[in-house]
Design a binder for these strands. Structure first.
Lengths: 334, 334
DNA sequence: CTTTAGCAGTCAAAACAAAAGAGTGCTAAA
DNA sequence: TTTAGCACTCTTTTGTTTTGACTGCTAAAG
């Protein structure tokens, strides 16, 4: 589709733009990237690249800026593999090798490391609860009227919640609860804890509704509550030149402050290992100036959550993708 | 110190400035606040108020702006009590009356309600762990090599953590652990779980170090980890006119993104029920354009955390303080 | 002695004008 | 097919003028 020289020129323009955030002129490309042709030739190629939609021009007499299509081509075809330094590799290793017991904690560390190495804002969420199966349920009595329910899932995720009662709970009742829940739920998907189960336990087991109802209610709440979002390095974004525009800054804050938008972004489309959403590709108007890159935190093919980067469309895609690939690999080895 | 008329004029100026964010002129005060004297008289008074440090002037021919001293006087002496509408009261009631089991959850709801009603950014953290006493410790076996430790404190806060082992743990061992920890720690302050306890259990109880060491380590970590910060409504701030300045916006993001700064703010000085820090009063340069108002989430005199507002110096102190007082009262009744 | 009308003086902000400069597209020659 | 050269375009910068909101002061009035 694009001949070699056009690709080289497009790559040079995008690389340059990623670095400087200024529209790129033919002169700069000639001088800085030495592609063996004059600025006039580059200008001619630029006209064609613009005609085929890879480049935009802010106004008649300005340099070129990559279009969404340009970025897309860049990400799909021109990206530099392994754009990661030895130093960065060592830093990531040191961060990830600390002994961590909880998966949530590990995801957090990976997320903050990602932000530190790439200098963009990073974000993560836990795995979708509906995809997990129950491995074990345990009830623990705290005091006399408080019960903690602990659910262990097959991904190793532990969910716990507290249920308060108006009357005392006996150790015996706790034992019965442990028995019923484990018998009934072991191996079943998490979201099977709901109304039907409540009715089953009430009718079949003849167990007091007064006790069982708040338990099911609370478990249901915990299971269905959206998982916690972890955000790191939001302030880094404000160092970027695009944040001189109040509108851009406002949109950014609005995006990261609206959990629903972030959740949506982190929960969609995992056809590839690493997913890149470039600005305009999203329907959300507020996202038009930003790109999002996400990957799944996986261990032995189990989904342990999603980690992502949100940055300007003019993001250093090569670096971010390389770093993500490395972190992803390391997490999977854990 | 200030005569009645000066107070009235100062109040009018600050009220007006809080509303409009524009330097206040003598003419506006004469027309809008009808204090029974002409703009010339107000001008004369303004000169004196400026001389005594309550007002500032951006430049020679502009209106007046409150100084830090002015705001301080306003907060200490001129605030409107009960600046809260019936509608707002009802809204807060409806938000707080939902049955909630966990204190952390309640603090969160109070925090988001505070932000919704005041339209400023709100933030909260849990109570300082070192102040709490242990009520009960329970160990729960999850699978065969994973232990969950649950600590119930006298404030009703529950802390839990997971410890992983390289070898299987028996039910019997769990029982022993429960026995030892409860015997040794009931009623003691949280931070007594540390090295000496490890040694005691090892030497006196002759219990395997291989098991006990990771437990103490992990418990120690959980107890000493800074409590989680909850932030709500950061995007609201960006509607304020002061955020047109990039520097202000940057400082704001930097503040709320740096947990240490926020922690510091939420953890200091609780001489009064409600604490007001006005911009320049803090040593932190980044805080110079902002004010912070905090209060303790208390129930039966027990400290359950701190809730605060961060907004522009030109904050609606009356409203924020009134709303806080109401929420604080409601929480204490819970 | 206090208040107020009136007015000159100040300064930021807005509006306008001119110049500079970066970069393009096109033409014509290599 | 490539490139030098140049006219043209449009933003950015810089400078100038105008406008208008306020003040502080003065002097008269209460």
């Amino acid at each position: 589709m694009l001949d070699e020289r056009k690709k080289k020129i497009l790559q040079a323009i995008i690389d340059e733009y990623i670095n400087t955030a200024d529209p790129v002129s033919s002169g700069i490309i000639e001088k800085k990237y030495r592609l063996g042709c004059s600025s006039a030739t580059i200008r001619n190629e630029m006209v064609e690249l613009e005609r085929s939609g890879y480049l935009d021009k802010p106004h008649t007499s300005s340099g070129r800026v990559p279009s969404a299509k340009g970025y897309r081509f860049y990400v799909d075809e021109l990206i530099k593999e392994d754009d990661i330094s030895l130093q960065e590799i060592k830093y990531i290793q040191s961060k990830l090798e600390t002994k961590i017991n909880e998966i949530e904690e590990l995801t957090k560390i990976a997320t903050s490391t990602l932000s530190e190495v790439t200098h963009y804002t990073s974000v993560s969420i836990g795995p979708r609860t509906s995809l997990q199966n129950i491995e074990e349920v345990k009830f623990v009595l705290l005091g006399t009227r408080m019960l903690m329910a602990v659910i262990l899932t097959d991904t190793g995720i532990v969910k716990e919640t507290i249920i308060k009662f108006d009357e005392d709970i006996t150790e015996e009742q706790v034992n019965t609860l442990n028995f019923i829940f484990n018998n009934k739920l072991k191996g079943k998907p998490l979201d099977e804890i709901d109304k039907p189960l409540e009715e089953y336990i009430f009718s079949e087991m003849n167990y007091s509704l007064k006790v069982i109802k708040p338990i099911i209610q609370q478990l249901d709440r915990v299971i269905n509550e959206e998982s916690k979002m972890y955000l790191e390095g939001a302030n880094r974004a404000f160092e970027l030149p695009e944040f001189k525009s109040l509108e851009v800054a406002k949109n950014f804050i609005s995006i990261i402050d609206t959990k629903e938008i972030m959740m949506d972004l982190l929960n969609t489309g995992f056809a590839k290992d690493i997913n890149v959403y470039i600005g305009d590709e999203s329907k959300n108007e507020k996202l038009k100036d930003f790109s999002i890159i996400t990957f799944k935190h996986r261990y032995q093919d189990k989904d342990l959550g999603t980690i992502g980067i949100i940055g300007p469309k003019r993001m250093d895609y090569s670096k971010v993708i390389s770093v993500m690939k490395y972190i992803s690999k390391k997490l999977n080895e854990k």
